[in-house]
Design a protein around this nucleic acid. Structure first.
Length: 219
DNA sequence: GCGACAG
DNA sequence: ATCTTGTCGC
């Protein structure tokens, strides 16, 4: 698939933050509520600055894999909380461009709206591709939330500066919640519903688990 | 002011 | 993210 180049690559923290502030205005918080091809994206790090990015596309109904791509690269930006996306964005974009099919939902390993400037990795990938995107975080990042009930499907809102920016969602009975937020062209209800539907057996949704597996064991 | 801070 | 043993549970 094709991915647009919407900005020059930042060199400094200030440049990266200004890109986020500018692209944030392009985020759309509504979109389709059914999908046919869902992509999971993840990155595995090795050594000082080497990384492997993987994308796995699943049939949205059967969850059978239909396409995959792996790209080896280097960390593209130092790790700064809030600017995490810039570390792995180029490799993830390359992997998406290698795909033989175009997914209609990106399930990203990280945050979307639940971000200090309201523009996490899931928003960034959504805006660059124009595709619906959502973020799944494994630890709380911004805002505050109550602990959801222990049953699968239970959730509580994540509130930041008085605004709901995501949900803490229990994807299996008795497991730690995951943190769901909108990336682009998706409602919070739909993002929650998709994460729950895609987390068939484990805490994390299948597309992310399979991308994680592929990034760790390429070839 | 200091620490904490997605992965 | 990654560095790592044991341990608990299915």
């Amino acid at each position: 698939m094709q991915v647009r180049q919407l900005h020059p690559w930042p060199t400094t923290v200030a440049e990266a933050e200004s890109i986020q502030d500018r692209l944030r205005e392009r985020v759309e918080l509504a979109g389709p509520d059914t999908f046919t091809l869902v992509a999971g994206l993840d990155v595995h790090y090795h050594g000082d600055d080497r990384l492997t990015a993987a994308v796995v596309v699943l049939d949205a109904v059967s969850l059978e894999p239909v396409a995959r791509a792996v790209v080896h690269g280097r960390v593209a930006f130092p790790y700064v909380p809030g600017l995490f996306a810039f570390r792995e964005l180029p490799a993830l974009v390359e992997a998406l461009e290698e795909l033989s099919v175009t997914p209609d939902l990106l399930v990203c390993d990280g945050y979307g709206l639940a971000h200090p400037r309201g523009f996490g990795l899931a928003c960034h990938l959504g805006v660059l591709t124009g595709l619906p995107a959502l973020g799944v975080g494994k630890t709380p990042f911004v805002g505050s939330h109550e602990t959801p009930a222990p049953e699968r499907g239970a959730w509580t809102p994540i509130v930041h500066d008085g605004v709901t920016v995501g949900r803490a969602l229990r994807t299996q009975d008795g497991v730690k919640p995951v943190y769901v937020s909108q990336g682009h062209r998706i409602s919070l209800d739909t993002a929650t519903e998709q994460v729950l539907r895609l987390a068939t057996r484990y805490r994390l949704p299948e597309p992310i688990r399979q991308a994680d597996h592929l990034a760790r064991h390429p070839g």
